[in-house]
Amino acid sequence: MSRKYLLSVALVLSLFHQFAMGQGRSRFGGRYTDPFGILSVQAGVGVAYYMGDLNDGVNIKHLGLGPSVSLGALYRLTEHVSARGELRFYQVSAHQKYSKNYQNNLSFKTFNPDINLGLQADLFAYNRHARINPYLFGGVGVTYLNPKAKLDGTWYSLAPLTTEGVKYKRLPLVFTAGIGVSYKTSERLSIGVELCNNFVRSDYLDDVSTVYPNPDQLPSDLARRLSDRSSEIGEPLRQPGWNRGSAKSKDSYLFLQVRATYLIGNRAQAIERKKTRCPKF
């Protein structure tokens, strides 16, 4: 291989490197910024939607939407990938009187926390400073199940009553996957919209999963009344073993949120900003 050829290759690589660095120039001093370790904080607010045994399709008039709130952080690993963690709170509800299985007359409402860790993959590189940046994300975490039902004007926690004769786990795993898009409004602040689905490794988000139990095996009269509520609407009591829910698929909940992301940066960026703000004379 000739020296001339090697010099040509070296020149092309050098020009390519300079071009890449130029495309990724940071606003901090006009130089390329190493993205690793850059920290951002996030907050989101929106609605939560439940998908499970107590609804059998989308009912536009009775969606059972509840609020969802999230607080978290992004820790950048590469130009495109960040680790993310969040603490979230959500409320969902449903009533079978709006479904095809109205004769069971079951209902629930729950206000739950969850926490999750995962990865976010941006379409455009960090140093490109794209004003609009779509992204995908996924993660795993846990949520605390606390379904309640209203009887005679009072809300009762259902899990301790074992309304199906099952003592289920109240801290199941949750797998999260979604899509979003952010819009950079300033050097450090971005506003965006995010849609994510949360797949619960439990079918008891709504306290309903399999079949009606033998009422004699339930711990109290209250448990029996909340286990089978068909008589409240003039229907005959369900027989033990009749379908109360369907264990073929697990429950899930969907979030649609407006989100704000504020870039804190890392130590190197803080030094650059300090130099910019405090020039030496």
Rank of each mutant, 00 (worst) to 15 (best):
M1D: 07
Y5D: 08
A10W: 09
V12I: 04
Q18L: 14
Q18I: 14
F19L: 08
G24I: 01
R25C: 00
S26N: 03
G30P: 00
R31F: 03
Y32T: 03
T33R: 04
D34L: 00
F36Y: 07
L39P: 04
Q42L: 07
A43S: 12
G44S: 15
V47E: 06
A48W: 10
Y49R: 05
Y50W: 04
G52N: 03
L54T: 05
N59Y: 12
I60H: 05
K61L: 05
G64P: 06
G64R: 08
V69F: 15
G72P: 01
L74R: 12
Y75S: 12
V81I: 15
S82H: 15
S82I: 02
A83T: 10
G85M: 10
E86A: 09
L87A: 10
L87W: 11
R88Y: 03
Y90W: 11
S93E: 11
H95R: 11
Q96I: 03
N104M: 12
L106W: 06
F108Y: 12
F108Q: 07
K109G: 13
F111G: 14
P113S: 06
L119T: 02
A121Q: 05
L123V: 11
F124M: 07
F124C: 00
R128Y: 06
H129T: 02
A130I: 02
P134T: 04
G138P: 07
V140G: 10
G141D: 06
V142D: 01
K148W: 02
K148P: 00
A149L: 08
G153C: 02
Y156F: 11
S157M: 01
S157N: 14
P160K: 02
L161Y: 07
T162L: 11
T163W: 03
V166G: 10
K167C: 00
R170K: 15
L171P: 01
L171C: 09
P172S: 13
L173A: 12
L173M: 13
L173Y: 08
A177P: 01
V181F: 02
K184W: 05
S186P: 02
S186C: 04
D206N: 04
V208Q: 05
T210E: 04
T210R: 03
V211C: 04
P215I: 02
P215M: 01
Q217A: 10
P219T: 09
D221F: 01
L222M: 10
R225L: 06
S231K: 09
S231Q: 13
G234I: 12
G234R: 13
E235R: 11
Q239N: 04
P240V: 06
R244P: 05
A247K: 08
A247I: 08
K248Q: 07
S249F: 06
Y253F: 14
R259F: 12
L263S: 13
I264F: 13
I264D: 14
N266R: 05
R267F: 05
R273C: 13
K274A: 10
K275Q: 09
R277D: 11
P279H: 03
